[in-house]
Write a protein that binds this DNA or RNA. Sequence first.
DNA 1: ACCTGAACACCGTTCAAGT
DNA 2: ACCTGAACACCGTTCAAGT
Lengths: 183, 183
Amino acid sequence: MPRNRAPVDRTEKRAEIVTAATRLFVDDGYDNTTMGKIAAAAGVTANTIYWYFRDKDQLLIGVLDDVHAQTLIRFTALGELPLGDRILWAVRELTGYHRLVDTVHVRKAQSPEIDDWHNAFHSTWEGWLASNLTLLGVSEADIEPMTRVIVFVIESMLTHPNTELENRATVDVLLRMVDPPTS
Amino acid sequence: MPRNRAPVDRTEKRAEIVTAATRLFVDDGYDNTTMGKIAAAAGVTANTIYWYFRDKDQLLIGVLDDVHAQTLIRFTALGELPLGDRILWAVRELTGYHRLVDTVHVRKAQSPEIDDWHNAFHSTWEGWLASNLTLLGVSEADIEPMTRVIVFVIESMLTHPNTELENRATVDVLLRMVDPPTS
DNA sequence: ACCTGAACACCGTTCAAGT
DNA sequence: ACCTGAACACCGTTCAAGT
């Protein structure tokens, strides 16, 4: 019996649970998804999930990490694009996950781990945006508030779905903050 | 026995339940607040609440209507102020209700009535903002997306608490969209 | 009309017991 | 180490019964 047999199985089983939970959290929402449904979709019983995750919130973090990692990979694979196009790409890519966004905002008040995850999420994207704004010549003092505004608008665009045309218009007026039209 | 005795009592009892629910939803969150706790705080048993509200979501709507109505009254009582100051006032006033905001965003997917309430809320404030932007000379085509951006940022400011100084800076750069600095 | 005690169906989580 | 059946505590909601 090879020494890495068990660990590999464990990783695979964990991944199956995360995959099942992701689909259910995304489609039906966190509250409507019972541990029993997730377990059934992963081919185990509800209490087995607790061998892999401390509780339902830790499973949520597993889902968030997975979704975020995959999004980061695709985001990095994007070629050079103007800031507005990158933002629209991210909105298009993440709109399907709007229920996860709302759930994180509710549950970060209950779970320190989800609060940490949420803070790290904001740090990651605010850091990326800040360096972009610097490159675009935004003054030092404006970087922080502008970064906040842009992240806020992106998050809200996810949770308040609009048409592609409306999103384009939203991002256009938003970036006029950064790069005012030379009238 | 006066004919309006019962209706008056009913209104008062309903108000007591709403008051109790408001405090608990705001302080502890919707999920952590059981019907039993609300009932105890209002001096009844849990099932009595169902005589006044169809279910927990309808009680949430009762709470939202109450909080929103009171906020509207205070908002109207505000004197003439620049747009930025009015926005900061609203943020200051509503920050304490950030858990309600997040809860509405999660539950509007489950309850058509809460979805309706949320849409009406956005309509009210986007309408008010749109007329303000028109007065400030914003072009017809920009009104709608700018209104969206401002409402999005206000909502996110509530759910991502910052210092008063940070909020001031956020609103300043935000309104540069509306009124670009004459450089 | 209004209120209650008791019950129902369900859910997240635990635990003793198996392999 | 991994998994399960059974149980526990709890919750939103219902209902028959009272006044």
